[in-house]
């Protein structure tokens, strides 16, 4: 019998959490008629209704919209943003790191110096300034956060690429006359995939947190859209009266961050 250790609990929680959130995304994407959730319908008689009101298990917000529906659709939006930021920034970073590590020499030095400049700035500072250029909206948030946060990935991928370069199988492939393209696609990329997967798991919570912070500050998504960030923002404004409106998205954010973080930590590296 296997004993229960904190590490195993974290891993189970992480994987279970991710499955739960993927389920939520599917649920949020399904049309309202199927799920019975409508995040935009207002009922002025139910403004700030408490949880447990018939038909509205989580109550209603300041415009009389159903909290549960808004939470589900908001979760979908936030998770999609988190996933997209994760994928986009991992791809960007992988591209940069692979290029730098594979090319070597002066090219590598130049790319790494550029990376250092970018890396010196906090993700949120870059993203905020980029939001100026891009305007509000889901795509803007994804692009801004991805451009703000790919540098860590690039560093790790470059280090891994340098390791692979020294491997005997690579030397063998090269001496057999493999073209650079073949080397990249058949040897570097497949060997990088496990690392990339873990990096992705660490980037997703970064994207989720970035989105919620930007939207919370009023710099991300604008009001009609619901995401964890905008929901927290609305909950914050009604805090003394109805603390649960803040609590629901808050709990979701913490659960999501933990799920991805633990899944990442227990699946290798670190």
């Amino acid at each position: 019998m296997r004993s229960i250790t904190p590490a195993r609990i974290r891993k189970t929680f992480g994987i279970g959490g991710i499955l739960f959130f993927l389920f939520l995304v599917v649920f949020a994407i399904l049309p309202g008629q199927l799920t019975g959730l409508d995040p935009v319908r207002q009922d002025t008689r139910l403004v700030l209704a408490a949880p447990g009101t018939p038909g509205h298990p989580l109550g209603c917000d300041f415009l009389g919209r159903d909290n549960l529906s808004r939470l589900v659709s908001g979760s979908g939006v936030s998770l999609l943003i988190g996933l997209s930021v994760g994928v986009l920034s991992t791809v960007l970073g992988a591209f940069w790191g692979l290029l730098s590590g594979y090319a070597g020499g002066t090219f590598d030095t130049v790319l790494m110096r550029l990376l250092e400049v970018w890396y010196a700035l906090p993700e949120l500072l870059i993203a905020t300034i980029l939001m100026l250029v891009l305007g509000h909206g889901i795509v803007s948030v994804v692009v801004a956060l991805s451009i703000g946060g790919w540098m860590g990935v690039a560093r790790v991928v470059r280090a891994e690429t340098l390791k692979i370069r020294e491997q005997a199988y690579l030397e063998a492939a090269r001496s057999l006359g493999a073209t650079p393209l073949r080397l990249l696609l058949k040897h570097f990329v497949p060997n990088l995939l496990p690392v990339l997967f873990v990096l992705l798991l660490f980037r997703i919570p970064g994207g989720i947190l970035g989105e919620s912070t930007l939207s919370f500050l009023g710099l991300g998504l604008s009001p009609p859209a619901s995401s964890w960030g905008t929901l927290v923002n609305e909950g914050w404004k009604a805090l003394p009266l109805t603390p649960w409106i803040l609590a629901f998205p808050a709990i979701m954010i913490i659960l999501a961050l933990l799920a991805f973080q633990w899944a990442g930590e227990e699946s290798g590296i670190r």
């Binding site: 912070t213 909950g235 973080q261 930590e265």
Partner: peptide, 27 residues
């Protein structure tokens, strides 16, 4: 066992966004 528990706790701690903490503290 205690160290693992503390590690788990500290990652919950790290995952707390500052705005949630602020809301909690104010409340």
């Amino acid at each position: 066992p205690a160290a693992g528990l503390l590690r788990t706790l500290s990652s919950v701690w790290v995952a707390l966004p500052s705005f949630l903490l602020a809301a909690l503290l104010i409340e």
